[in-house]
Design a protein around this nucleic acid. Sequence first.
DNA 1: CCTAGGGTTCTTGTATGCAAGTATTTATGT
DNA 2: ACATAAATACTTGCATACAAGAACCCTAGG
Lengths: 258, 258
Amino acid sequence: MSSEPSRNVAVGEQVYRLIHSAIVDLTLAPAQRISEHMLVKEMNVSRTPIREAIQRLERDGLVLVFPQRGTFVAPLDRQAIRSAYVTRIALERAVAAEAASRRSTEDIARLRQAIADQREVAKSEVYYPVDARSGRFFALNEGFHRDLMEIADLAGLGPVVGSAKVHLERVRVAHLAYEDPYPIGPLVEEHTAIVEAVASGDPAAADEAMREHIARVLPRLDLLMTHRPDLFELPRELGNPVGFARQPQTTDRMTADK
Amino acid sequence: MSSEPSRNVAVGEQVYRLIHSAIVDLTLAPAQRISEHMLVKEMNVSRTPIREAIQRLERDGLVLVFPQRGTFVAPLDRQAIRSAYVTRIALERAVAAEAASRRSTEDIARLRQAIADQREVAKSEVYYPVDARSGRFFALNEGFHRDLMEIADLAGLGPVVGSAKVHLERVRVAHLAYEDPYPIGPLVEEHTAIVEAVASGDPAAADEAMREHIARVLPRLDLLMTHRPDLFELPRELGNPVGFARQPQTTDRMTADK
DNA sequence: CCTAGGGTTCTTGTATGCAAGTATTTATGT
DNA sequence: ACATAAATACTTGCATACAAGAACCCTAGG
């Protein structure tokens, strides 16, 4: 980026974050075409960091790359959303259970403080904002789940859960334009139940409390599919994009042929 | 690659698979230094696809990139391995349970056929080979778990589970050099238990059968850490690599500044 | 009016050159 | 001999040029 070098964070990382959040909050519409050249002009960066970002987004399932044909913002995909939901619920449950097994007294205090903060914020921020990703409660919520991961000594799950969450968030953002504002009060109560289960050192109870919590925030997918089928369709039928047979179990070996 | 264009699969993908399997089967030793230039000479490819592959491997947690300082094969990391283990067990359990809920009669037949194939192969291949990733049973095992995902309509979990599994496989490969050959007969019996639970449509039983199965293949990590501490250490203490604060929750917006 | 063909323009994939920063090594002075 | 500093040889990040293929449009012919 020619303006504001903003050293300390690589350019490719900045580009990735920018496009990433634009896709998640639907600023970039599903199925919308994007081209590297367009992004180059728009962001004053060369193609290299743009391509790096696009390849990461492709692996996140947020863009579809058709070689020599074009790149598109990934439409909402029922199967991908279902997978993301299963992933999130399975991993967060495991985190809660493990946190209940490993928590120290300091951890308990930390979680109770987090709950107190959430309660305080919930007095002023009663509903989620329409973009769903701004506001203090959103940050507190993210931090709460991250705290649990650290207590469970499973911080490595952060990226995995995060990459699943973005698909659910896109659905939630789309929903907020059609549904009543989402109240955050009940979320704090559910968080409280999780914390108490963790504090009591009961993994099964923590597991169940988290299961209820996550199940509750599942957006009504079918409703959205009938209201906005356009969000689920790619403009034209193209073949398969390139990046879907990942995680190879190849048996090849390093063959230096020089 | 200058020799054998091998069209149909992108060069970057080939490079990725090559380095990926070399790291997983420990052909490339943990903590070993690798440089883009070295790989360029070794594989007769330009830096671009090499860099693409390295960035993907970095996100897989298989290499560590220190900008302007060097790139290293990621040493075995206790926390990463623990996270991978939790991820795999949580997701495979969810898959088994969901498969039990959705299975059709054709699915049941398919699974029983897979078991029959495994039993047949287990007669000749009694133990895992030392490289742990070749042989017919390895492929059958991969296919079995993939079948379950398809039956559960959760094929999207394939890459996630796969990227977790590689960390466990590295540990398993390292183990096989120090332990007795691993018998595959019991694995077939465990698979059978899973299939019967799925066939009977009992999600809880399928969940439990899968839990036992995965828990059994957990390699003895502590043993390896005492035998080969070198596999867990980076040669020198460097700062943090670049790619660890992924999955941003940035609030930035697209700001075209042209 | 419709169809077929050719050329133009767009797309992404790949190779390469330049820049900036780090570590190592060598020279130089004490 | 030792410490210090400059120079040199690396590293990866970024920019850009070239190549190959796909889609589109426009024209010519039926």
